[in-house]
Design a protein around this nucleic acid. Structure first.
Length: 256
DNA sequence: ATGGTAGGCGCCCTA
């Protein structure tokens, strides 16, 4: 069983890449972030023709998440605590055999101290509270997505200049740690301790060509799933293509 | 003092 996460930075633009990547990678479940597509124009037909079910929550221009899967979910939740999301950033799906996938597109936050940054912290707190309550509902629990936080110094190319900046700030690290302490593991770090392994590279600075980026996309698993995880990699090949997303997919493989 | 690119939208915003 393979489960992956990918911020595609516009599903409409990246759809051909996503469809060919699905064939190549043979994943069973893929959580996608930044679809930037309203529900009414979501490419259901193309994804179903590729052999996947899809659930989605989107909006015009910004944000938007979808989780596509070879088996249909038993339950889909698009709200947090029964409240409609003002920004469409979170999608929960549950499957047979007691598996939950929580797909997150964490707020970017723009700059420390800005209104967007305050919203990032507030959003993270509310999601954390939701997770705390939801985590015990299924035996297998996976949180994947674009977290917009580089967890440690080895997860970004220039930690000293990024210290206390957005995506590498103690307030964000504290919230991430509270999540981890619910009993979750960053699957990539179960297998690979090297520095300089990134999932996102800035277009503006030609970060990919310069090997400068951050590891801000990851897959967090509860202890049962962490034990059954056999591999977790970042597929940088997807970032080498013509007209790529600024993020590469993260793939975890399980014996289930 | 804040460039550079990309996507969506429409001449600017967000990442």
């Amino acid at each position: 069983m393979k489960i992956a996460s990918w911020n595609v930075n516009s599903l409409r633009v990246r759809l051909p890449q996503v469809l060919s990547w699905l064939k190549k990678s043979d994943v069973d479940i893929l959580g996608i972030q930044e679809t930037k597509v309203e529900d009414g124009s979501f490419p259901i037909k193309e994804i179903e023709e590729a052999g996947f079910f899809c659930d989605f929550i989107g909006q015009k221009t910004y944000n938007g998440v979808t989780t596509i899967s070879k088996i249909p979910p038993k339950q889909v939740i698009k709200s947090i605590d029964g409240k409609e999301q003002e920004q469409k950033r979170i999608l929960l799906t549950r499957y047979k055999d007691d598996l939950t996938i929580l797909n997150l597109y964490v707020v970017n936050g723009s700059e420390v101290g800005s209104d967007k940054y305050k919203y990032k912290l507030k959003w993270l707190k509310s999601v954390k509270n939701f997770i705390k309550k939801d985590l015990k509902k299924t035996k297998y629990y996976l949180i994947l997505g674009d977290f917009n936080i580089a967890p440690h110094a080895k997860d970004l190319s220039n930690p000293d200049s990024m210290r206390d900046k957005v995506s590498f700030h103690p307030k964000e690290h504290a919230l991430l740690l509270e999540l981890i302490e619910f009993g979750l593991s960053d699957l990539f770090r179960k297998f690979d301790q090297r520095s300089g392994k990134f999932s996102w590279w800035d277009f503006r600075t030609h970060g990919f060509e310069r090997d400068e980026g951050m590891r801000i996309d990851y897959i967090l698993a509860n202890s049962v799933l962490t034990s059954s995880c056999q591999a977790c990699i970042i597929d940088t090949e997807a970032r080498e293509q013509e007209r790529p997303s600024d993020h590469a997919p993260v793939i975890a493989e399980f014996k289930l």
